[in-house]
């Protein structure tokens, strides 16, 4: 009896996972075979470039059709960064006790300009090529993280003060909402760029697609500053 119990205790987790996987497999199989006409996705694919001016359809959905959801995601990061900044102790706490070799110091010095260029490229070309404000912002947030790991928290805070990070994050969040309000002033809905007749330009050029590049820039600033602030708070904690 106890041996059976032991074997059961060992394998019930795996069995649970397998059961769930088979269950999901049947559900997805049913969904695949359902006879639904996907009007919305067909509309996005066939009309998206004309309506929003962005070649990258993912960006056109994220920042035009579903801009309000992006605002919600940005609010989540804003809330997390604000809460963590509020809980951060003011005193300087000792860093991770790791000493790196000179190879790592020199490599990080060389890498940082490339990271700036890559992040800016991803943000500004978000409506033309894969990428977007969120990914570019995370890459920009990597720079303070690398500087902090490399040179310590004191040097990093001298270079980019936590108050400035919070200010940048606020600028990003408020700028996103103000750009959304532009749609109301133009006589359409909140966060509308394609429907509000903003001059979409030629699809494929850098300055096109109405408000989408500016929304990308705001999200990039906001996410980058927010994640840098979160990291700063985490590393000073306890």
């Amino acid at each position: 009896m106890s041996r059976v119990h032991k074997i059961f205790r060992k394998f019930y987790k795996i069995g649970l996972v397998l059961f769930l996987a088979i269950f999901l497999l049947f559900i997805f199989d049913e969904i695949q075979n359902l006879d639904i006409k996907r009007y919305l996705s067909e509309h996005y694919i066939s009309e998206g470039v004309q309506e929003t001016g962005a070649i990258n359809l993912v960006t056109s959905v994220l920042y035009d059709y579903r801009g309000f959801d992006t605002l919600g995601e940005a609010t989540v990061i804003l809330t997390a960064a604000a809460t963590l900044s509020f809980m951060t102790p003011i005193k300087k706490v000792k860093m991770l006790g790791t000493e790196f070799t000179i190879i790592i110091y020199q490599t990080i010095i060389i890498i940082i300009p490339f990271l700036v260029v890559l992040g800016m490229n991803l943000i500004f070309f978000g409506h033309i090529s894969p990428g977007g404000g969120f990914v570019g912002g995370v890459i920009l947030a990597m720079i303070p993280i690398l500087v902090t790991i490399n040179y310590g928290i004191t040097f990093s805070e001298n270079k980019l003060k936590p108050n400035h990070k919070s200010l940048l994050e606020g600028i990003g969040a408020i700028g996103f909402i103000l750009l959304g309000l532009l749609g109301i002033f133009a006589g359409s809905n909140f966060l509308a760029s394609g429907q509000a007749n903003f001059g979409l330009g030629n699809p494929g050029e850098l300055i096109s697609a109405g408000l989408i590049p500016y929304l990308n820039l705001m999200i990039g600033i906001k996410v980058g500053a927010g994640l840098a602030a979160i990291f700063n708070s985490l590393i000073k904690e306890g």
Binding site: N56, V58, L96, L122, P130, G131, G132, F134, V135, V138, I139, A141, M142, I145, L227, I230, F231, L234, I235, E237, G238
Partner: peptide
């Protein structure tokens, strides 16, 4: 899906690893 690949590369392999390692260290 290059968009999802970029997001996964930056967030999954880079950022969460850093945050988790620092949290465990603390």
């Amino acid at each position: 899906a290059p968009d999802a690949a970029l997001a996964e590369a930056v967030i999954g392999a880079g950022l969460t690893l850093t945050f988790f390692v620092i949290t465990i260290n603390k």
